[in-house]
């Protein structure tokens, strides 16, 4: 080449694109779908599918067994309600959330690939919202699937359609609430502690140990006749909020100290607050990391 002082970028035939471009909404939708798939290990390596589907299996198989029982024995109703079933498998749901939240919330921050997302016209808070929505939806799918197995199986076995549908809808409303809370809590924990193991244990503390403590306190409070203490303790964990509301609503769950009167409203408000605060904390975290 000739000795030139000025620099030049040679046109080697790159083609410009001047056509229409998709906006933030499309990017967010694509990220949401990808996130939802990743939560179940879809689109990732074969080994990443083992755990979510193993847990999903553990969550669904008992429902299938119940359907089998209802089919072959002369019973006119399910032995437990949809909300009751979710309450029974809360440990499995908690493990799923604890294990899969780091997939959606830790990896981008830890490997700093978040910068690549934000290089697109996508604000950090939209990315955070998308992630949270993916996890919430994944949790909802995870909990709804066994409920649907019960519902469809029960109807096929000739149970009353109206009653079952009302029960299911009650359960779905509760599921949405609990999914939003659990996604907010585990998502926040995973976006703060980027080491996978640490995040998992942190989530387990929030979703298994704390509810365990709450249940123990409620049992003792009920025995000692100090129900108010037990009801107040129920505000401390997402699962006790969920089961307390389910009890108050007659959705087929029994807790030691069910909330009554104004406490029910308090439960709803706190549950909404937990979900909202979790989401807000995730957004704040993404904004901070994204701006570094």
């Amino acid at each position: 080449m000739a000795d030139q002082r000025a620099g030049v970028i040679h046109d080697l035939g790159y083609r410009h694109y001047d056509g229409p471009r998709d906006g933030v909404a499309t990017i967010a939708r694509t990220l949401f779908v990808t996130g939802l798939r990743h939560a179940f290990g879809l689109g990732r390596s074969g080994r990443s599918k083992i755990l979510p589907f193993l847990l999903l299996g553990i969550a669904v198989v008992p429902a299938a067994v119940v359907v089998g029982v209802v089919t072959f024995l002369p019973v006119s109703e399910l032995p437990l309600t949809y909300a009751g079933y979710t309450n029974q498998i809360q440990l499995v749901v908690s493990l799923f959330a604890a294990a899969q939240a780091p997939v959606l919330f830790s990896r981008d921050l830890r490997h700093r690939s978040i910068v690549l997302y934000l290089a697109r016209p996508l604000p950090a808070h939209v990315l955070a919202l998308t992630r949270w929505f993916s996890l919430t939806t994944a949790l909802l799918v995870f909990m709804l699937l066994p409920a649907l197995v019960l519902y469809v199986g029960g109807l096929l076995a000739g149970l009353d359609v109206g009653g079952q549908t009302v029960d299911l809808l009650k359960a779905v409303a509760l599921l949405v609430l609990v999914a939003a809370m659990v996604a907010g809590i585990t998502g926040f924990i995973s976006s703060v502690s980027l080491r996978r193991g640490f995040a998992v244990v942190g989530s387990i503390v929030a979703l298994v140990v704390v509810p365990g403590v709450v249940t123990a306190v409620q049992a003792i409070a009920s025995e000692e006749g100090a129900d108010e203490v037990g009801v107040a303790a129920g505000l401390a964990s997402p699962w006790s909020l969920n089961s307390g509301l389910a009890d108050a609503w007659g959705a087929g769950v029994t807790v030691f100290t069910p909330p009554t009167g104004a406490w029910v409203a308090a439960y709803v408000v706190v549950a909404l607050l937990v979900a909202a605060l979790g989401l807000a904390a995730i957004v704040a975290r993404f904004l901070r990391v994204g701006s570094q």
Partner: peptide, 18 residues
Amino acid sequence: TRHAVIVSLLFVLIWEGL
């Protein structure tokens, strides 16, 4: 395994517990 924490928790909570 790199997923030791979650595998161990599965053993404790699902196998031994549930």
